[in-house]
Design a protein around this nucleic acid. Structure first.
Ligand SMILES: [Mn+2]
Ligand SMILES: [Mn+2]
Ligand SMILES: [Zn+2]
Ligand SMILES: [Zn+2]
Lengths: 145, 145
DNA sequence: TTCTAATTGAAAATGATTATCATTTACATT
DNA sequence: AATGTAAATGATAATCATTTTCAATTAGAA
């Protein structure tokens, strides 16, 4: 029952859950749940391939449903300043083409069975970019008197 | 001086260093070094863009030189069972093409300044694959008497 | 029901990373 | 050279996500 409750919660709200976040959500419907079980179940679902695990650089793991009816193939923009995450699926066709080719070549050359892949683009989001410009400007101009 | 020692160590041996590993290496040439300084310097080099930071799924951060004279653009195969890492640069031209296109589209659409990207292929390495087959076989066959 | 193995929750342990703080260093100005 | 000041450093403690332990509960098979 705990496992079902966790998977259900993951299905409903589909953003990039941390373990603790998921724990709190599940806790409402299933107050007996323990944090350790959430950790264990997430690892389980990960190995089954039902969910993906990510590290977006804020010291904890995040999860989302694997590609399926509710989720389509996409990758992530990660703001290295504020941690904002943007899902994108632009150029998926192109990306899929190259990836398939790559998986072919790699699996043969290295005898490696590829289960999934993830691509991260790191940089600065709109907001952090403008914040930076602001501080640059004030730095160049000096403190106003 | 500590910083130089750290960068030098990174240049010489070009594996995927963890902080602690790097600390030990530097410690030989520069015994006064503190672990905290290694952490601080690695973050610094990361922000400058001289090195890249990775999470390969073994609970610690790993680093390598950014693309330059000593390092060429590549991505990683990660064995989710034993943690083995394989660098690959097959199909770089293709990959670079799509990536450039993608960076164009994304930076415009989301007003996002892209600094770098990383692609991980997750799966099973040759060894873990054969180990798995072995255990499957014995599981199907049952324990020999 | 009875037995056994898997699952679970609570709590403790682990371990990478970060924060603190007193000391040292680098370096510009006298 | 002496002085002043801010940055860098090393040692240590604190943090905090994750893992481990372990006793209790549950789920099925017999
Ligand atoms: Mn996503
Ligand atoms: Mn590499
Ligand atoms: Zn941002
Ligand atoms: Zn392996």
């Amino acid at each position: 029952m705990p496992r079902q409750a966790i998977l259900e919660a993951l299905r409903k709200a589909n953003k990039h859950f941390s373990t603790e976040e998921l724990y709190h959500v599940v806790h409402k419907k299933y107050p007996a749940i323990g944090l350790a079980t959430v950790y264990r179940t997430l690892e389980l679902l990960c190995q089954i391939g039902l969910i993906f695990k990510f590290d977006f650089g804020d010291g904890l793991s995040r999860y989302e449903l694997a590609v399926g009816p509710d989720q389509n193939h996409h990758h992530h923009l990660i703001c290295t300043t504020c941690g904002r995450i943007i899902d994108f699926s632009e150029l998926v066709e192109e990306e899929t083409r190259v990836t398939r080719e790559l998986e072919n070549v790699l699996s043969k050359k290295y005898n490696f069975k590829i289960d999934s892949h993830q691509t991260h683009f790191l940089g600065l989001c709109e907001k952090c970019l403008s914040d930076l410009k602001g501080s640059d400007l004030s730095a160049a101009t000096g403190t106003l008197k």
